[in-house]
Amino acid sequence: MSTTAAPPTSVPVRPTVTRKPVGRVSALGFKYLALVFFAMAVLTPLYIVLVASFKGTAEADPSNAWALPDVWTFDAWRQAWDQLLPNLKNSLYLVIPATLISTVLGSLNGFVLSRWRFPGSDVVFLFLLFGMFIPYQAVMIPLAQLFADVDFPTGIPRLAFAHIVYGIPITTLIFRSYYATIPEELIEAARMDRAGMLRTYWSVVLPLSAPAFVVTAIWQFTSIWNDFLFAVFLITDPSKWPVTVALNNTTGSLVTPYNLQMSAALLASLPTLVVYILLGRYFIRGLMAGSLKG
């Protein structure tokens, strides 16, 4: 989405030299001006994408990127939908299990590492943290090799497995920080009530974990959905491509159908948007409740 965006015409601000109350008003005005400026900087490319997606193929051209469509049409959206539907499905088949499994694993790990510690748990945690800083590029070749060596089922299972394993460090970290805020006495009370580790997790910790689950699920959903590198590398069969890889192939051979590209891009990013809108307020709350405090 690298359209050459003209900078919005800036209104010159002249600070008015006045007494206090007015000074405060002008400071507030300046604050809003700055906020509007940055909001526009973020939203301008989106505007171009959005208008282009409603244009016809002929009309969608970088030369009139700023103009509203002369004729509003859903053609590009319809076409993108038809073309990407199988891949959208692939993405869902990938993202839903991978998100659920990596989140549940993170929750279990986080519980054990923060509240049911064992000798050497600090070292284990350190290694897990370390895993977070390994770039995709560094593991791709050994990963593919390993999959081939053990004859792992090809296609989406491979990709899902890779994302699950790769997600464990971050999901563990989020849950560990969240669980650190659960009072130790609560766990000890369960122990005194004769609950074992799994029982304590299931009956006491899990019911209190909703905020951390939301945060982690959104995080995992978004990053797995948006991933391109693992997908393009691990999946060779185009019919199994997730939407991100398929998106790359909406580029036409002779002319570039900008309207199609833009609507496809929007379509591909819609699910993460929906997830965020549905769960977003828990996301904020969850961050407040656990992750940031830890």
Binding site: P183, L186, E188, A189, A190, M192, S203, P207
Partner: peptide, 14 residues
């Protein structure tokens, strides 16, 4: 087989 009452009660909130 011992029961403990904690200072902050530690009731299960849910």
């Amino acid at each position: 087989d011992i029961a403990m009452v904690f200072q902050n009660y530690a009731l299960y909130p849910h």
